[in-house]
Computed example of a mutant assay.
Amino acid sequence: MSEPTRAVALAALTELWAQGCPIASPDDRDRLVDIGLRRWHSFHRRHPRNRQPSQEARIRDLVRGLIEAVEPKPRLVGPLVKDYECVAEAIAAAAASPLRQP
């Protein structure tokens, strides 16, 4: 993963935290970005049959991966999933930003 992409994702999560998103905590921010970018870039390897996934499908997959990695009991997340969706969208936007290097 490129450092500019990581920096964009970290800045996005910093902004989410400032807006009140409890998932984008400074304590977990680095871990969320690392997990999120790794999950985003491994989508096609994990889903080889889905050659042209929608952005929504990739974000749902990213949300699922973040929840599984962070939450001790993923099935109990409930309404907090909306905050994970915000984090996933921010990471996805960073991964697709023009600063991204191959």
Rank of each mutant, 00 (worst) to 15 (best):
M1S: 09
M1T: 11
S2M: 06
S2N: 13
E3S: 08
T5K: 04
T5Y: 04
V8P: 01
V8M: 06
L10V: 01
A11C: 01
A11D: 11
A11I: 01
A11L: 06
L13E: 01
T14C: 06
E15Y: 00
E15A: 13
L16R: 03
A18E: 08
C21G: 01
C21L: 06
P22C: 00
P22Y: 00
I23R: 07
P26C: 09
P26K: 04
P26F: 08
D27Y: 13
D27V: 14
D28L: 15
D28Q: 14
R29K: 11
V33L: 07
V33S: 02
G36A: 06
G36Y: 03
L37R: 01
L37M: 05
L37K: 02
H41E: 09
H41V: 00
S42Y: 00
R46E: 15
H47L: 04
H47S: 08
P48R: 06
P48W: 04
N50W: 08
N50E: 10
R51L: 14
P53N: 06
P53M: 07
S54V: 00
R58M: 14
R58G: 05
D61V: 05
V63K: 00
R64Y: 11
R64M: 11
G65D: 04
I67C: 10
V70N: 13
V70M: 15
E71S: 14
K73L: 13
K73M: 11
P74H: 09
L76I: 05
V77S: 07
V77Y: 01
V77Q: 03
V77W: 05
P79Q: 01
P79S: 10
V81Q: 11
K82W: 12
K82N: 15
D83Q: 12
E85D: 15
E85N: 14
C86A: 13
C86L: 15
C86D: 14
C86P: 11
V87T: 11
A88V: 03
E89C: 12
A93Q: 13
A94C: 01
A96V: 02
A96F: 00
P98Q: 12
L99I: 08
L99W: 13
R100E: 10
R100I: 02
R100G: 05
R100A: 13
Q101G: 10
P102M: 07
